[in-house]
Amino acid sequence: MTKYEDSLPLQLIRARDVSMDYFRPILADNEITEQQWRVMRVLDTLGEIDFSTLSRECCILGPSLTGIVSRLEKMGYVQRKKSANDGRKYYIHLTNKAKTLVDDLRPLIEAQYIELKAKLGEEKYRQLSSLLNALIDTKEQ
């Protein structure tokens, strides 16, 4: 049996925590959670999308995402719009307030990526990203 310290899921959780340490202070200073930021980043990148797509893209289960979207809506960062064709389906998009926040945080977040890449090394960062994407791609095969 694989030793626990060589457990890939455990290593990935630890690596996630280390990587998020670079970004958590920025998010905390702006009173948004990691999950809220993830939702906002996806919406900033993809634009208005339906709830199911947002759930899949953010890797957040529907029941949890419902609460996150509700809180973001109360904060004035997202709006929901019912589908014209399907009353059960709705779309979510960023407000101008959220777009401003994303634009304001973008250079701060990028600075943290630069610091992370400097500590790890650009080549190792690229290798790590490539290996993680290869692992993710095994699910699609």
Rank of each mutant, 00 (worst) to 15 (best):
I26C: 09
K99D: 00
V18N: 05
L46N: 10
L72C: 08
V39N: 10
C58P: 04
I68L: 14
L65I: 13
S83W: 09
I32P: 00
S83T: 04
I49M: 06
A84T: 12
C58F: 02
R24H: 10
L72M: 15
R88L: 14
R88C: 04
I60P: 09
K89H: 02
L27T: 05
F23A: 04
R88G: 12
L54Q: 04
R71F: 05
R71L: 13
K89Y: 03
R38S: 10
Y77C: 09
L65D: 11
L46V: 14
K97W: 00
T53Y: 00
L108F: 02
S52Q: 12
Y77Q: 06
Q36G: 08
V39T: 13
D29H: 07
N85R: 12
T66E: 05
H93P: 00
S70H: 05
L27D: 05
W37H: 08
Y77P: 13
L65H: 05
R88I: 10
G87E: 15
I109R: 10
R106P: 07
G47S: 05
V18A: 02
L43S: 04
Y77K: 15
V39R: 04
V42Q: 09
Q79L: 09
P107K: 02
M20F: 11
P107Y: 09
D104A: 11
E73S: 10
E34F: 15
R24L: 10
S70F: 13
D103Y: 00
D86W: 11
A84P: 03
I109Q: 10
S19C: 03
Y22P: 01
S19M: 01
D17R: 08
T95N: 06
L108S: 05
D44E: 07
V39K: 04
R88Y: 14
D21W: 09
P63K: 10
R71M: 10
M75C: 08
L61F: 05
A28W: 12
S52M: 14
L94E: 01
L61I: 03
E34T: 08
I32C: 08
E57I: 02
K81S: 11
M75N: 07
H93G: 13
D50K: 11
D50H: 15
K89C: 11
K82I: 08
V78K: 12
M20C: 07
Q36R: 10
T45S: 12
K82Y: 07
L105D: 03
T45A: 08
N96C: 00
D103R: 15
L105E: 01
Y77F: 14
S55W: 04
T100G: 00
V42F: 09
G47A: 14
P25A: 03
P63M: 12
R56V: 08
R41S: 12
A98S: 05
K97P: 00
S55H: 01
R38M: 15
T33Q: 01
Y91M: 08
P63L: 11
G76E: 06
D104P: 09
L108I: 01
E110A: 06
I92L: 01
P63W: 09
L105Y: 06
E57R: 12
N96Y: 01
A84I: 11
F23T: 07
K82E: 08
L46K: 14
H93F: 03
I92M: 10
R88F: 14
F51Q: 03
I109L: 01
R88P: 01
T66M: 02
N85E: 12
R56F: 09
S64Q: 13
S52I: 03
W37P: 00
L27F: 15
S83L: 11
D29N: 13
D103W: 06
V78E: 04
